[in-house]
Design a protein around this nucleic acid. Structure first.
Lengths: 208, 208
DNA sequence: CGCCTGGGGTGACAACTGTTCACTGACTCA
DNA sequence: TGAGTCAGTGAACAGTTGTCACCCCAGGCG
């Protein structure tokens, strides 16, 4: 008789289903640490979960659809984090360092998700590529909109603001994946900070 | 009795072998346009060439080794092109436009190679990732060395020059893969030009 | 010339894949 | 309470995969 508002699983039934679904996503993400989505087998995933192959179809049409769900899981919840990151006003060296540190801690917290995004951004599954591209474009828009409200953006053309935002987003993704592959985190974060400074300088002298 | 110096195929035998090897590479590259290396099957490649599966082993241990060979084919010959690109002295708007145009024409000439590099740079096969990373690091070194000879580099720290070079190389790769995925080439090249201008401005004011 | 090397072919193997269909039994809800 | 829903099961299918030992015969070379 009780109605649960907002949250998805309304009964024991739905809850179990979502639990299995999440188990499939988790197992897939783990398997994808050492292979690409286009070689991920449906049986491989169900075996890792401890469930019969056909159960897979109750949740996803194929592994491509699972991939799209993973994109949502990895990037969907990042919008709020990004907003917080942008809200930290102030500029200069400590702002730059803070940004890079935030990226580093995110990579440390969710390495598998980051790896997945970096790997499948140009991967072999079209639907997943497009899902990631869409999310990143959304990020760029959000960043650009944020910039537009700041006094530094006075005199900037709309499209140049978007270009600048794209540069920042691209740099973020590249730094994240570089952090995954290196074992010298200091080296990577240092380079990332200097690159941000470089972009910041270009930004300051854009209107000449 | 005649000795051919330098060039590889010294006899009809060797020539045939290299011909088959090249056919395997070509077929693989074509198949990789719509999948990742980690899902590329050995049989799939030989079938496309019109050769029996076991013949594959005469040339490569497995598909990973073929992938490394593809990296060499795609990036190995690019060093000279890159040198030419850097040799074009002069700066400012037309230099930037020329650079972007050169990238665009390279993508148009070898789209499959570019796609392969973008896809496997963070792909599921470790050996291939490392091969690509090594080549790109080499590019960055070459660019940095070139910069070091220019008067603009006066006062720059060695590691900052390398950082700058990496930024340019990364930007090149990103622009190339962006050109592959878009259908609006003008849009992408325009953004790329503006990003180069942004970096150039940062470069000009680095020593403040 | 005639032996030898080795790229390519044959056929077969066990293991694996995605997808189908009919099923069971715990949960839902009027 | 009793009928219906549906997440997960079980078995079977037609293909596919990588790898094997063995054979063939054109090209290389003394």
């Amino acid at each position: 008789m009780s109605h649960v508002l907002g949250s998805r699983p309304v009964g024991v039934r739905q809850a179990q289903k979502q639990k299995t679904r999440q188990a499939l996503l988790d197992a897939a993400l783990r398997l994808l640490e050492e292979q690409s989505l286009s070689s991920l087998g449906l049986r491989e995933v169900t075996r890792a979960v401890g469930v019969v192959p056909t159960a897979f179809y109750r949740h996803f049409r194929d592994t491509a659809e699972l991939g799209v769900a993973l994109v949502e899981e990895a990037l969907g919840s990042l919008h709020t984090t990004l907003a917080a990151m942008l809200a930290a006003t102030g500029d200069g060296e400590e702002r730059v360092a803070g940004t890079v540190q935030l990226i580093a801690s995110y990579v440390r917290a969710y390495p598998a998700h980051v790896r997945f995004i970096a790997r499948e951004r140009h991967g072999g599954v079209k639907a997943v590529r497009e899902a990631i591209g869409g999310q990143l474009a959304l990020f760029a828009r959000e960043v650009a909109d944020r910039f537009a409200t700041e006094p530094r953006a006075a005199g900037w053309r709309e499209e140049d603001l978007l270009m600048l935002a794209r540069t920042y987003v691209d740099h973020m993704v590249m730094t994240a994946s570089a952090l995954l592959e290196t074992d010298d985190e200091q080296q990577v974060t240092s380079t990332a900070r200097h690159q941000l400074r470089l972009i910041g300088l270009g930004r300051d002298h854009w209107l000449d």
